[in-house]
Design a protein around this nucleic acid. Structure first.
Lengths: 180, 180
DNA sequence: TCGCACATGTAACGCGTTACATGATTAC
DNA sequence: GTAATCATGTAACGCGTTACATGTGCGA
């Protein structure tokens, strides 16, 4: 197991929800953790093979009509490793926001162009709020009894709160640039 | 020039503030853009050499006492390229927050442990707010006449607003976990 | 019948980090 | 005298993305 990559744990975590295929995991990540964590295909599939070899997960072939599908489940060993990781302090945190980097150097171009960039960002943020809220409503209806619900809602509320702060900031700075 | 890396532009932008050494650029990044953008030594120094070769920047040796120091300046060509980039829409945006990933899977461990993680995070966020505010105060006093000030304050306000939202979220979810 | 969603993977590439190497100066 | 800061770089490594390869099933 690699010492720095968290891909394995992201997979293990997803498999505590229910047994899933690699494709399902990717879909679920895009719907649920994308606003703070994501993995690409090139990470996911090799990691699944590796975890199977380690016996942290097992694989069962499912015939879905004529097409094969690999359904992965977490093992006892896998659960132990996951819990160990969940208990440790989180260290990895990285952001790279090209938009803010450009704005930081905004004095080099016309205020109008910066204002346009902010307006575009505002639109994106607004869409993301709508999407996060829709997911929240969906979960509260469809996953009422899931033991995961509390934590899923927490991570969603985090995303919503941050996005709302971003929105408020956009409005504030657009005003500042327009009066200049 | 690489098509995906923004290191070159981050350097060019910094050099529009004033001529600087590689060491200065790194220091400045850590003090100013770290909350949304950063570069490591292994990116910075080769990029400086590369940009000099392209004539987007120039290099002058400064004798600081007996020790050599390379002071870089942005060229006209460099300014043109920077402005071009600043005008284009920002595309790169990535976050990886291990803390939130762990919380998302929090149902697998005791609520108390999750609460502890959140408390640790709360402390970090609080420190970062203090630091961002201190930087803001410093800039408003010491850079009153800089043409960059408006944009620097905007990026700081972004960081402060977001951190405050994070703080509010921490308080909210800690309460939720404690009453359970 | 055309395109999209489902489904699993591999290979190349290069970005970005970490550790290493070196040495001067300054503050305690 | 010794630890921290100033100062510049290189080399190895591997994480993570992107593009490629392949094929099925289904709805319009």
């Amino acid at each position: 197991m690699s010492k720095t990559s968290k891909t394995a744990y992201a997979i293990l975590g997803m498999l505590t929800i229910e047994p899933m295929s690699g494709y399902d995991i990717r879909q679920l990540m895009q719907k649920s953790t994308a606003h703070f964590w994501s993995e690409s295909d090139g990470q996911l599939y090799p990691a699944l093979a590796n975890l199977t070899e380690l016996e942290w997960i097992t694989c069962k072939l499912a015939k879905k009509n004529t097409r094969d599908k690999k359904i992965y489940s977490i093992t006892k060993k896998g659960r132990t490793e996951l819990k160990k990781w969940l208990t440790e302090e989180a260290l990895t945190f990285s952001v790279r926001d090209e938009f803010l980097l450009k704005l930081f150097f905004g004095a080099n171009i016309a205020p109008r162009i910066n204002a346009e960039h902010i307006a575009a960002r505002r639109y994106q943020v607004k869409s993301s709020i709508a999407q996060l809220k829709a997911t929240k409503d969906y979960l509260m209806q469809e996953e009422k009894n899931s033991p995961h619900l509390t934590y899923w809602l927490m991570s969603l509320d985090y995303g919503i709160k941050l996005a709302q702060a971003k929105l408020a900031w956009c409005d504030e700075v657009i005003n500042k640039l327009n009066v200049e």
